[in-house]
Design a protein around this nucleic acid. Structure first.
Lengths: 148, 148
DNA sequence: TTGAAATATGATAAATGTTGTATTATTTGT
DNA sequence: ACAAATAATACAACATTTATCATATTTCAA
């Protein structure tokens, strides 16, 4: 139960895009190099991000990608689910076969789904824009600390 | 990001054991049949549960397995982690390479780990014993509903 | 002490999923 | 028309999950 590498790459790419001047088109190769992401793999990921309305792509000379929505309106959950599919539990944990035609029904399932919503809540609480700022502050602090 | 089948099987098996009379030794084959779990696969899972101090195993004639601790003292997290290993995030999501020697440090990582602890909190809140009772009530209600 | 009943251990196979590459379109600006 | 960029797929390598099986080892009891 963990984030895939593809999910990590997607977040890295989106944060990079969130930190660019508005309307700048960035080439996938640039994102790949900056983020240490295998370029061909990133292309597949970018495709999913585009299909999920998270980025805009432009082909041809002068093309590239950029955020579709403002960074303040995109959450980690948006990014993760675009790449990994909806976070959800599929099977009932108690009964293998159906019961009254409802497979999604046992108490374990309930607990699991509560646990999951707590997680989702947290992944939705902060926007990419806020994360970019938070990171800059963190790294600034660190540089300051080191230079003492 | 989801529970493995092995994790589901483990929970099913533990709930079944939690619902048995104290000190009854149950054979793995019985658990497998009741829970619709491939028997040989379940044997591997049982091994992990035993190594993580969740069940007691007894070999030979009259052997079988039973809970080591009371069902009221075992949580879903105990079971899941016994089978799937510790729930934890390994990589920093923003920087591929290290920064100041601390890989576990970016804001995304922070959010992620908060999200995860919320989830863990929930998976720890209820014991197997409580789940068994909750399930019985649920199914009783359902039968009642259907017979109308 | 022998035999049958049960789990322990570990090897291995099959299926699936993740990660990555490559190839061939297709679109776009000049 | 050409070059530059993404789109769309197919595919390969690798890892993980999901099993299965064979061979110990332990245990009880006749």
């Amino acid at each position: 139960m963990r984030l895939t590498l593809a999910g990590e790459y997607a977040i890295r790419a989106m944060l990079f895009l969130a930190d660019q001047p508005t309307d700048r088109r960035v080439q996938i190769s640039e994102i790949a190099e900056t983020g240490s992401i295998p370029e061909n793999f990133l292309r597949n990921i970018v495709l999913k991000l585009a299909k999920n309305q998270l980025i805009q792509t432009h082909r041809g000379a002068g093309g590239g990608v950029k955020l579709l929505r403002p960074a303040s309106e995109v959450t980690l959950l948006d990014v993760i689910e675009a790449v990994e599919g909806k976070l959800s539990l599929n099977h009932c944990l108690v009964q293998a076969q159906e019961f009254c035609g409802r497979t999604e029904w046992c108490s374990v399932h309930l607990i699991w789904s509560v646990a999951q919503s707590k997680m989702i809540e947290e992944l939705t609480a902060t926007s990419l824009a806020e994360l970019v700022i938070a990171n800059k502050q963190r790294f600034a602090e660190t540089v300051c600390y080191r230079s003492k």
